[in-house]
Write a protein that binds this DNA or RNA. Structure first.
Length: 167
DNA sequence: GCCAACGTTGGC
DNA sequence: GCCAACGTTGGC
């Protein structure tokens, strides 16, 4: 594994996708301390964000994917807890990775804490907002489960969340 | 369920 | 190192 690069200017903002059938914003709200370990990331680029760039206190847009109403469902924050993803060693887990060992772990997890549940900012609505057009999650072909969010995009999402949903 | 787009794997 | 085949993601 290459050495970690120095941390970027703080704070950062991120969008993290989760399938609500697996982990929804309500699951996060109901968790002890409203905090859950973010496990199951199996993409190197997303892992590297966790390893090199995400820091406690970073803002998170909690996004529901692969569901009837995809979109941003709440705000969260990174709560530390960076460590090897425990599910990679669990042969009963769908996230088991036979090529991973505790001595040489491939995958990482960190803790995500709820800040607040929001109205659903639907993907459809995000696509209609010109100020969000630059968001990585909206780019064609994007599949990354963790993407960086610029301060301007973050502010624009907060502003949209305060408005009534589009009809 | 469909399928476009992407990342990973593995033969060569 | 190339690249075709394959598996996965995720909106629709």
């Amino acid at each position: 594994m290459p050495l970690a690069s120095p941390p970027p200017p703080w704070p950062n903002h991120w969008l993290m996708k989760s399938e609500p059938a697996e982990v929804s914003i309500d699951h996060l709200a109901a968790a002890p301390g409203q905090t859950l370990p973010w496990t199951g990331v199996r993409n190197y680029q997303a892992r590297n964000f966790m390893r090199d760039a995400m820091r406690p206190g970073d803002g998170v847009l909690f996004y529901h994917s692969s569901c009837a109403e995809p979109g941003i469902a709440g705000l969260a924050e990174i709560a530390g807890g960076l460590q090897p993803d425990t599910t990679q060693f669990d042969s009963a887990s769908p996230y088991f990775d036979a090529k991973s060992t505790p001595a040489q772990p491939r995958w990482l997890q960190l803790d995500v804490r709820l800040v607040r549940k929001t109205r659903l900012l639907a993907l459809r609505e995000m696509r209609q907002a010109p100020e969000l057009a630059s968001m990585q999650v909206l780019q064609r072909g994007n599949r990354l489960s963790i993407t960086p969010v610029t301060p301007a995009e973050w502010q624009a999402v907060l502003a949209l969340l305060q408005q009534a949903p589009l009809a």
